[in-house]
Amino acid sequence: MNTNYFRGKRILVTGACQGIGRGIALELWRNGATVVALSNQEANLKRLKAEYRSIETAAVDLTDWDRTREVVEELGDFDGLVNCAGVCITEPFLECSPRSFDITMSLNVKAILNVSQIVASKMIVKKIKGAIVNISSQASMAALANHTAYCASKAAVDSMTRVMALELGPHNIRVNSVNPTVIMTDLGRQAWAEPVKANAMKSKIPLGRFGEVQEVVNVVVFLLSEGASLVSGTSLPVDGGFLAT
Rank of each mutant, 00 (worst) to 15 (best):
K110M: 13
S97G: 14
A111I: 12
N108A: 08
E91P: 12
R99P: 01
V115S: 03
D102K: 00
P98D: 15
P98C: 12
F101Q: 07
S106L: 01
L94A: 06
L113R: 02
F93A: 00
V115N: 01
D102N: 03
S106E: 05
S121E: 15
K122T: 09
L107M: 13
C96N: 15
Q117N: 07
F93D: 03
S106C: 07
A111N: 11
N114K: 10
K110N: 14
A111Y: 11
D102T: 00
S100F: 03
E91D: 09
V125N: 05
E91T: 11
I112G: 01
V125P: 00
E95T: 11
I118W: 14
N114L: 12
A120P: 09
Q117M: 08
Q117D: 06
K110P: 11
S97Q: 13
S97L: 13
F101M: 15
F93P: 04
N114R: 12
S116I: 09
T90N: 02
A120S: 13
S116C: 12
N114F: 09
C96M: 13
L94V: 08
V115A: 02
N108H: 06
V109D: 05
D102Y: 02
F101E: 10
D102M: 00
V119G: 02
I112T: 00
A111V: 11
F101I: 11
N114A: 14
P98W: 15
I124K: 14
N114D: 15
C96E: 15
K122W: 02
Q117S: 10
L107R: 08
